[in-house]
């Protein structure tokens, strides 16, 4: 049941992107509960008026290419996982592929599986490279998430994500040891066609959805590989808020210091398809050679992908070829609820 290609593959390059604007949770709280409700996180990243999943993916992809030191023409796939593709019909991935100079001898497709569309694309890239069909494939998880005004999701639905170039193990800053996917039909969160905002099952999103899938994929991956939590220098879990990933890590037997570096939700919010992948970039920015890292995504609907990687000595020379994730996280321009409403077009003028 372990997902592992015949040919050894790894991460040749990675790149992050987080927009500049931040909406403090206290602003949402001020508008909807008169400041009495509190906020699950400090603040969330908000895309500017000229940003969307395509433009943000372009920057993350350029960062990944810079780290890998690759000519974009060697990419055989550009895959973008998101639930906020700018068009309902027309691929985000062709825009990204064109902008980074990867066209025309390239596969391009958009992936959708709520918050785990990015790791889904990553696993497919493992297969494409691992089968020998391609030497390099680009997998992106990126979102500009939308929460209904006044809904619990509005505090956390953020913007950002990351891009990963999967390549042969011998040209990798981290080798992929294996992956495991755990999927069931669990309707914890969904959005129907033509609807602007999603519906969610409130507490139902916890135990039967997030925890069941995240714990199962992580545990079964570690069982398959014969690894234990103490074998990992760091771990990152999907971050719809701070509590869920912290609790999942604790239940699996990870210590808080193993998950601290990758836990970005308090500063940028839930970046949906970007969430666990963005956390992984922050870990790789700090990792030493020959360290194991566990990444566990979660997508509503529902499923979880767990991936185990081990860094190589190449990580040290490659990481500073592009801005570190914390550079994006620390770059911040605070906005109030009114400007947020304008930037995210929540006001309909008709």
């Amino acid at each position: 049941m372990l997902l592992k290609p015949i040919r050894d593959v790894g991460i040749a390059g990675y790149g992050a992107y987080v927009p500049r604007y931040r909406l403090p949770g206290s602003e949402v709280d001020r508008i909807w509960t008169d400041g009495q409700g509190g906020s699950p996180i400090e603040e969330k990243a908000v895309a500017g008026p000229d940003e969307d999943t395509a433009s943000m993916s372009v920057e993350a992809a350029r960062n990944a290419l810079a780290r890998a030191g690759l000519n974009p023409q060697v990419l055989r796939a550009v895959w973008v996982g998101s639930e906020s593709h700018p068009y309902a019909v027309k691929p985000t991935s062709t825009i990204v592929a064109e902008a980074i100079g990867a066209v025309p001898a390239v596969q391009a497709a958009d992936w959708e599986f709520a918050c785990k569309a990015g790791t889904e694309a990553f696993q497919a890239a493992m297969g494409l490279v691992g089968s020998g069909m391609a030497d390099y494939a680009l997998a992106i998880g990126m979102d500009t998430a939308q929460g209904r005004p006044g809904d619990a999701l509005e505090y956390t639905a953020g913007a950002g994500g990351a891009a990963f170039i999967v390549g042969p193990a011998e040209d990798s800053l981290a080798i992929i040891e294996g992956s495991f996917s755990y999927v069931t039909d669990t309707p914890d969160f969904f959005r129907r066609p033509m609807q602007h905002y999603p519906q969610h099952g409130s507490r139902f999103t916890g135990d039967p959805a997030y925890f069941r899938h995240v714990l199962a994929s992580a545990q079964q991956l570690m069982d398959s590989l014969g690894t234990k939590p103490e074998d990992y220098a760091a771990a990152v879990f999907h971050q719809p808020n701070s509590k869920f990933p912290e609790r999942a890590a604790r239940m699996l037997g990870f210590r808080p210091e193993q998950t601290r570096t990758g836990l970005l939700c308090p500063m940028v919010g839930n970046t949906y398809a970007g969430s666990s992948m963005l956390g992984l970039t922050a870990i790789l920015d700090e990792a030493q050679p020959d360290e194991r890292v566990l990444i566990v995504s979660f997508g509503s609907g529902a499923g979880s992908d767990a991936i185990s990687i081990r860094t190589t000595e190449k990580i040290e020379e490659r990481r500073d070829r592009a801005p570190r994730t914390q550079v994006y996280v620390q770059r911040r321009k605070e906005i109030d609820y009114g400007l947020y409403v304008r930037y995210r077009r929540k006001l309909h003028m008709h």
Partner: peptide, 17 residues
């Protein structure tokens, strides 16, 4: 240089980057 949205041709038109 960064690549961004330059404009949108209405609600149902092309997005120009």
């Amino acid at each position: 240089m960064v690549t961004r949205k330059l404009r949108e041709e209405g609600e149902d038109g092309l997005i120009v980057y």
